[in-house]
Design a protein around this nucleic acid. Structure first.
Lengths: 328, 328
DNA sequence: CATCGTTGTTCCAACGATGTAAAGACCCGG
DNA sequence: CCGGGTCTTTACATCGTTGGAACAACGATG
């Protein structure tokens, strides 16, 4: 692989002159510039980013710390973050935490100014003490812990409220919620939205209809749904805190021959691509994932360029109504 | 951020001694070692990977070039590759090509010895000429083009054959295939497996039952299925070249009130997590994705360490039989 | 006690790039 | 033809790390 030195030797100039040409410095004699450019072409020179960044004190990378790529929401988001990062000549390094505190801590520990310029975090279990970050960061989603770090995400309370209002507007009275979680910030907010929607319709908040989920995978949704169907009076609708839970819930309902939406209406959250193709297709809260990715990356870029920006960006969402609440 | 120099000054030893401690060199006096370790602890030293790799002539990164993270198969695979790469202290850089030739070329161009030590490629459109790679690489899956690059993947012909045999064993006679593609290597191989399974059962190969798909998304599967259902004699079973196509196909069947599996049996390929939870759940060819990821990373590691290894690794697969072919 | 081999440590150069400062080339007017 | 300013190029140091050579300390050996 050719280095500046090789190019310089070939062109008969100093290393620095080549560097100047490469970096578009103005004052290079046309004659030299031409020779250098020819030499660059001939050697197929490509700058060594590691060396350049060592010198410049940048790394050219940002970290994206998320629970798991096999969760569609995060996979889709990761794809969008990668695309958005390209605009700022950033490469994205993905770290998986598997939603555990240990995983998140180790991911954070592996970060460092030498490895990445900044980080986008989607934590689930982190505690306040953990947020001593060595690089500028943005949190995705809202969280229980209150730390001075920028955040990007939708208004979870309003979104959950919209979802449950939709169910109420269809005449449902006994609406369950799947996905309560002791430490997850978004879970608390979505539960609050659920609570408010019930309250404004003067519906009772029934403890047995709120089912926790330790993870947010399909299997957890199925298990939760089974427990709901085992109740003396099962619900006639269920609001799931993400689409995977909802998919699992619909699956469990189907196994008990409970029809969706006739016997049970289901709403999810995240609007995964998969949810438009399930049978029945899933009504879901649809955050604008592209906007989230873009906002997070842009915020970090401004932060790195300009210094301390502390900002919370609220991105839009909508409710995608599909067959799981309204039969076709 | 603390450097070796800082630690050395604090511990009262030379930079190299600190480096020796950090790198587990044996011959360091216990007393010095203790002092250095204390200093490391006190300063919170973390090596600058950029500098280390510059010195070692490594980058510490491998590239994973794939079509799109929003495709579950690749998302799951990416997660496994990241996990496997950690064993060799590699970070993974994901590049999305969106399945286009231009995208793949630009991803390849952005690779370079200075950026990554090696690459894992999952190309769809590349041509022979493009495979002038600047770094060691492994191809995932089999491809039409014949280039001297290591490959890791399952035996697509055998896998497709097993899938179609399964359909035949259930008594299906008019079996369609969705996913034929002019340039995609795996498509050709899966079609060949389909062909062989038909032949060995003395079933005719019917042109109109083989439907191409330009992309392998759910929408393409749905469109293909609709065209099949429009035939004078629609098929009684369909083999889809991936799970997304199958999910789309099942969706389209449902919209036409065609029951799966009673009226139409469906088999997919990839065994996405989503396929176990669809209604009906999807019978699918299940490649061992973890084995693929592990084999690809290990192969690259050996290649980088030991020099030229050209090897084709065949990973195992199985057939996951679910409700889309056998009613519960 | 000189010599030796083993340990332990330090110094120096190097990886490939860029910022700085200073030197060299050039052109102008006086 | 000189002085002074503007271009243009170069040498050198530097980023943080590690490999290698050189050196120092040590107990063991003859």
């Amino acid at each position: 692989m050719a280095t500046l030195k090789d190019v310089a030797r070939l062109a008969g100039v100093s290393v620095k002159t080549v560097s100047n040409v490469v970096n578009g410095y103005s004052f290079v004699k046309p004659d030299n510039r031409r020779r250098v450019e020819e030499a660059l072409e001939a050697t197929g020179y490509r700058p060594n980013l590691g060396a350049r960044n060592l010198r410049r004190g940048r790394t050219g990378f940002i970290a994206l710390v998320l629970p798991e790529l096999s969760i569609p929401y995060f996979a889709e988001l990761a794809g969008l973050v990668i695309a958005a990062a390209q605009d700022h000549e950033w490469n994205v390094l993905i770290e998986q935490t598997f939603g555990t505190l240990a995983g998140e801590r180790s991911a954070l520990a592996s970060l460092g100014p030498h490895l990445v310029d900044a980080a986008i975090l989607s934590p689930e279990a982190l505690q306040v003490d953990d947020f001593q970050l060595p690089v500028p960061a943005v949190l995705l989603g809202e969280h229980a812990v209150d730390v001075p770090i920028s955040r990007v995400g939708i208004d979870n309370v309003a979104a959950a409220q919209a979802a449950v209002r939709h169910l109420i507007s269809l005449g449902h009275q006994r609406i369950a919620a799947i996905g309560a979680h002791p430490h997850r910030g978004t879970a608390a907010l979505r539960l609050e939205g659920y609570r408010r929607a019930l309250a404004e319709a003067s519906l009772p908040f029934v403890d047995e209809l709120v089912v926790p989920a330790l993870n947010y995978h399909r299997a957890d949704g199925a298990a939760a749904m089974r427990s709901l169907l085992d109740l003396r009076t099962p619900p006639d609708a269920v609001f799931c805190f993400n689409d995977l839970l909802a998919i699992g819930a619909m699956r469990a309902a189907g196994e008990r021959l409970v029809r969706v939406p006739q016997d049970l209406a289901v709403v999810g959250f995240d609007n995964n691509e998969e949810s438009a193709y399930s049978s029945p297709s899933l009504t879901s809260v649809a955050p604008d994932k592209a906007a989230i990715a873009q906002a997070a990356v842009d915020l970090l870029h401004r932060r790195v360029e300009a210094g301390d920006v502390l900002e919370n960006v609220e991105t839009p969402f909508s409710l995608q109504v599909r067959e799981s609440t309204v039969a076709r």
